[in-house]
C-alpha cells in the first residue's frame, strides 16, 4: 500500500494512502486507465455527494479504495464459483455471468461511456451532474445493456464497492479521516461496550477509532 505513493502522478489529486496522512500526494491508479479513472471519480461523486450531512466519496477516497481492491483475489473472482456453463436465468437465482469484478468494471465503464457519448456526445465524466444522475439511474433500473451484461450488474457492483469504500476501515484505503464512520456515528474498532451497554439513551461520548489507532 505504501508503495503506491511514489507512482507517477495522474490527473486527479486525492489524499495519500494510509500511513502518509500528513502530505497529500496524487494517487496513481494501478488498475484503472485514465479514462476509467475519470468515470470512477465522477460516478463516486454522484453516488456519495458531499453535502451538509458529511463528506462525499471523493473526500473519503472511495476511488482509491476501489482501485486498491482491484489488486485483491476478490476482484479476480477468486471467491466466486466461476465454472461454466454460464446459463442466464431469473434474477432471483443470482449472478450468472463469467466476469470477475475487474471485468465488470472494464465492460461496465466502457458501456456507460458509450451510452453517454451516444446520448449526450461526451463521456460520462464530461457531463453535467444532472445528466450523470440520469445515466446512473438508468443503469440502476436496468435501462441499458453492455454487451451480454445488464447494466444493473455493473451498477450493483459499483454501488456495493462505493459503500465499502466509504465505510470500511481506512486500512483498505477508503473512509479517509474516519469521515464515513463519524457521519454515521459508528465507533469503528472500539469493540468494547462493557460499561456502555446499559446506559440507556445516552449519547456515546467517544469518537471512532481505526485498526491502526487513528481516531476521529
Amino acid at each position: 500500500m505504501q508503495g503506491l505513493a511514489g507512482i507517477a502522478a495522474c490527473s486527479t489529486v486525492l489524499a495519500s494512502p494510509p500511513g502518509h496522512a500528513s502530505r497529500p500526494v496524487p494517487y496513481a491508479p494501478r488498475f484503472f486507465t485514465p479514462v476509467e479513472w475519470a468515470f470512477l471519480i465522477a460516478a463516486c461523486d454522484r453516488l456519495i455527494p458531499a453535502d451538509e450531512n458529511g463528506p462525499g466519496a471523493l473526500a473519503l477516497d472511495v476511488p482509491r479504495f476501489i482501485d486498491m481492491q482491484m489488486d485483491t483475489p476478490y476482484a479476480h473472482g477468486a471467491q466466486w464459483y466461476m465454472q461454466g456453463p454460464f446459463v442466464q436465468g431469473p434474477d432471483n437465482l443470482g449472478y450468472q455471468l463469467p466476469y470477475a469484478p475487474r471485468d465488470l468494471y472494464r465492460r461496465g465503464i466502457a458501456g456507460m461511456n458509450a451510452h453517454a457519448a451516444t446520448r449526450h456526445g461526451a463521456p460520462f465524466a464530461g457531463l453535467a451532474p444532472a445528466l450523470q444522475d440520469d445515466l446512473l439511474r438508468g443503469a440502476e433500473n436496468g435501462g441499458m445493456t453492455f454487451g451480454d451484461m445488464p447494466s444493473t450488474v455493473f451498477f450493483d457492483q459499483l454501488l456495493a464497492n462505493v459503500m465499502e469504500g466509504g465505510f470500511c476501515d481506512p486500512i483498505h484505503g477508503g473512509n479517509t479521516g474516519l469521515g464515513g464512520w463519524t457521519m454515521l456515528g459508528f465507533p469503528g474498532a472500539r469493540a468494547d461496550f462493557m460499561d456502555w451497554v446499559d446506559q440507556y439513551g445516552a449519547h456515546y461520548p467517544l469518537g471512532s477509532v481505526s485498526i491502526s489507532g487513528e481516531t476521529a
Binding site: Q79, Y81, Q83, P90, Y95
Partner: peptide
Amino acid sequence: QTALPYRRMA
C-alpha cells in the same frame, strides 16, 4: 426450472 450455481455468497 434449471437450477443455477450459487456463485456469490449471499
